[in-house]
Every structure is written in C-alpha cells, then in structure tokens.
Amino acid sequence: MNESISRIYSQVYKNIVSLRRQSFRMADVFIWPILYLFTLTFFVTYIGSDKSYLNLIILGMMGWRTIYFLNLEIVSTFMEEFWSKALPHMMISPISRIEFTIGSAISGLIKAIFVIILYLIITNILYGFWIPDWGTFILALGFLAVIGFSLGLFTLGLAYFFKHDAFNISFIIPDVIVLISGVYFSVESVYPSSILPFIRLLPTTQAFELLKSIIGFGQPNMILLILLTALWLVLAYLFNGWMYNRAKKEGKLARLG
C-alpha cells in the first residue's frame, strides 16, 4: 500500500473499528439522526403544511448531517486520541496533519452517507419522498462535504491549542449554520435586506440554496458557491497550518511527559 494511503486509511480503520464499542458515537449514527428526523417531520405533518415543506425539511437534514459529520469527525478523532492520552503516539508517527484530516473526514463521510441512505429509506416508506434530481443532489452534498471538511480543518486548528473548548465549538458550528444559512427555510423570508448580502456570502448558504433548488426552493449562485467554497478551504488550510506550527512552537501539540 502507498505510504500516504496507508496513513489515511489508519484513521478510517480506527474510527470504524472502535465505533461498535463507543455507545456515544453509535448513537450519533443510529439514534440521534432518526429522533431528529421524526421530531421535525412529525411537526410539519402535524401543522398540516404543504408536502413540499416536508421535502425541504428532509433535504435540509441530509445536507446538515453531511456538514455535521465531516466537521465533527475530524475534531473528535483528534480529541479521542487526546482523551485517551495516546495523542503523542500518533503525533510522533509520520502521518501529516493533512493525511490525518483526510482520513478522519473519510470516516465522517462514510457515516454521513450511511445516515443519508437511512433517511432516504425511512422517508420514502413513510412519506413517499424521493430525490427528483440526483445530479444536483450529489453536487450539493459534495459542496457541503467540502465545506464540512473546511470547518473541520478550522476547528482542528483550534483543537491543537484549546483542546476541549475547540471540541465544544465543533458542536456549535453546525447549529449556527442551520440559523444563518437557512437550512430549513428561505433566508430571504427571514433576514432583513441589510444583512442578506452577508448571509449570501457564506458558502453554506449557497450550498443549501443549491440543495433546496432540487425541489424549487433555492436560487444558488454557482460561481459564488465555487469561489466561496474554494476560499474557505484555502483559508481553513492556512489557519490550520498556522495553528499547528504555533502549537508545536509552544509545546502544546502533545506532551510526552
């Protein structure tokens, strides 16, 4: 096996193999997404709104889970090494910070895909939900995955230094995105026009607009989406590298003694 691929695979192996013995992480894949799905879909069914709103909620949840898993998995993979005091073993190995991030992001992606398939099966059976445009759906999820990866890189940069606090932030970020990027609603209908230009300058807003456009709710600006996603990725990469070098300089990366 190629050296780099072996190191990337090491993170996927660790996360997947340890999953069945970690009830908290198991619940994150099998319990919370289902509870969350039923909470929102039952509410929409209860208020008797248009079926298109039900579809909006289901699509929003799929997109949000993609960001959530990518971002959280990168940070929690690092934090679990830290919590078990095994972090120095990984940090003295030849794995680079990028190989580590890609490896943990892949295991996050596997979980996201699993949950999305689970959502598709459940919502198809219960509500007759189906994806009308698979090309746009996969493209939108692809953008959201890259954005989740960027957020993970950013939060990991914080984790090199702040450890527990950074982990808390990684939980907060996806929920803030729900609010400011209109995951379950149209941003135009909620935010004042003075704020809207800033909201639209978030790649998350544009990516969710693309996802919602499948069912006629969003109006994405594709050029803006591509540029902003690429910009966030570059900025997150640079920030992560800067924090890594600072932590290494100040002896906060990992401690042997």
Binding site: Y9, V17, S18
Partner: peptide, 27 residues
Amino acid sequence: NVVSGFTGVLNSLTCEQSLTYYGLLYN
C-alpha cells in the same frame, strides 16, 4: 519510535486492533 511511561492507550480497541492501527500509521 517512542515509549513513554506517561502516555495512554487508545480506548475501544483491542491490542491487535491498536497494533494494526499503529502499523498502518507506519505503513
């Protein structure tokens, strides 16, 4: 490689699984 009396082992992995993980890190 380093052995430290102050570091821990990974939670939720057996000895063999942990060694597989570290083996992959070093290819």
